[in-house]
Design a protein around this nucleic acid. Structure first.
Lengths: 301, 301
DNA sequence: CAGTATTTTGAAGCAAATTCATAACTTTCA
DNA sequence: TGAAAGTTATGAATTTGCTTCAAAATACTG
């Protein structure tokens, strides 16, 4: 026999009630059960827990020690169970986000800032999705939300629409292509293209435009940070394609210009991939709502 | 079903071992048992504790929380059990002392000072208040040692001899009785006797001298503190009878003199009353040894 | 000292934890 | 991709040990 929480509750109850009989009522078990329990406990601890010789069954020194343990431990257990309650009803949880889309930092950061104000107890984190496969990680519960623009049909995963955006062409104001009203795939043929350092299939320019048109740019150069890409573009080291929300803020800068891709412009859609069970959690809903609002704000600039 | 220590140990083992199977070995139960246990725990807590979709069975957010609880709680339990061990082998315990004999403060304090140096973990206290029913309190385990000079035959209580002392007569140097070489009961007839405020039967002068001789002093005045009694005696407000160790230290003072009671002198014996079970506890032995030494020291002055 | 309240004890019942046997997955490796 | 290895889940049988019941022992009260 081991010491168990039951025993701590028992000690506490007996102390408070001042006797087995009353404590038994309080715990909804027989007084006899308590007697056996105490005896077992004393056997196993090897010490007397109570002073028998007196009527109101007082705690001995060892009993006091055990009571102290109960007073330390039981509240800790209560606290843990309370947190489980919060986990269950969705007021607490983990929200680790993986972003496949490299430029998503731009709008996600402000969203998370807002989010933390309403849901301070949710454990939030962003994991740049370059180093691993975001969707398998989502299924394995290594992350809880993946921002992606390529919905797949996966069991237990749902893709919730966030917002639409347009990948747009960016070039220095002095660049010859800045003269055109829109850019076609063929226009890239003589250009150096600056992209994020990920596989081509995950870049809108390639997947939506160049690969279908079988066009290979003159050169490809990679840069990690959006700010650096814009810098390179401004100094005419190449051209790039970025989501409209990225360049929206700097649209009126005279250093570079943005042009739609193809005559009608391309449109892509961003999704939040979440596990089905978690889709309806309140903080999940909240994050999605905030993301949509943030996008609206950026696009109305 | 309630959450129990068993579950905490389980969580901890599974986390450390990195899987049910290995944890099962470590805990010396079947892997099946662990599986059932985890399931039960998840049902009752209402949250998933582990991430199933991955091979090395990882802890979920809730699982981490429970692990934290285990890491908080289990060491506390260990500590308590360790203290029980110490209680059992006698390196720790409670030593609350009741003194029937009012003047015993004088030698008991220095003894306890010494005692605390060797047995710092023993909870020591002196309780002067219940000098009345000290022995019943001993039996009810309200106190653990009673200093007494009247051994009784009580079940479960033993009287361990401490040391002998002599109640001696004290008077101002200028007092007429200071001329006598020893004092008899009859000498008290015209005197004011100063005593501690307790019943006569528990005062050596009365029980050993005046009551047997059927002598009533001219007056009786009571004082709480030994120092006050000596003060009153010195200023000739009365005479007193005190244990020799009390006046030994001030014996050569010219303010008062001490004289033996009766021609041969009275001798009394002081005992430590303890419960039989506790008599052989090491710290109990130590205290008794220290008391005897202290008495030797005082009497050799 | 009887009467009441409370705790202890032993046997029996019962619920819950464990085991056994086996199925269902996951991952690995060819 | 399929087979093999390793790991976890499940259901029925079993065992453990907690709880209850009934009755005796003990402590307290007037």
């Amino acid at each position: 026999m081991h010491i168990e929480f039951r025993h701590l509750r028992t000690i506490k109850a007996i102390h408070e009630a001042g006797g087995l009989a009353r404590a038994a009522d309080q715990l909804h078990i027989t007084q006899s059960a308590l007697s056996h329990q105490v005896k077992g406990l004393e056997d196993q601890a090897g010490v007397e827990l109570f002073v028998r010789r007196s009527k109101p069954l007082k705690l001995s020194a060892a009993g006091m020690r055990l009571l102290r343990l109960a007073d330390q431990v039981l509240p800790q257990v209560e606290a843990t169970l309370a947190e489980f309650g919060a986990l269950r009803d969705g007021s607490t949880g983990r929200l680790h986000i993986a972003i496949e889309c490299h430029a998503c930092f731009e709008w996600l950061f402000p969203v998370l800032e807002q989010f933390r104000r309403t849901w301070p107890d949710v454990d939030v984190d962003i994991r740049p999705g370059l180093s691993f496969d975001a969707l398998p990680a989502l299924m394995k519960e290594e992350v809880d939300l993946v921002v992606s623009s390529d919905p797949e049909d996966l069991p237990g995963v749902e893709f919730v629409e966030l917002f639409d955006y347009a990948p747009v062409f960016v070039a220095a104001s002095s660049h010859p292509l800045a003269q055109k009203t829109y850019i076609d795939a063929a226009d890239f043929r003589g250009e150096t293209l600056i992209t994020y350092p990920v596989e081509r299939t995950r870049l809108d320019v390639f997947s939506q435009l160049l690969i279908p048109a079988k066009v290979e740019p003159a050169g490809v150069r990679q840069a990690e940070l959006t700010a650096v890409i814009l810098l390179l573009v401004a100094s005419n080291r190449g051209v790039s394609v970025l989501p409209d929300w990225v360049v929206r803020e700097v649209k009126y800068s005279s250093d570079y210009v943005t042009r739609p891709l193809t005559k009608d412009g391309l449109t892509r859609r961003l999704y939040a991939a979440v596990r089905s069970e978690e889709r309806d959690k309140p903080y999940m809903q909240k994050l999605i709502e905030l993301a949509r609002n943030e996008a609206r704000k950026l696009q109305s600039i």
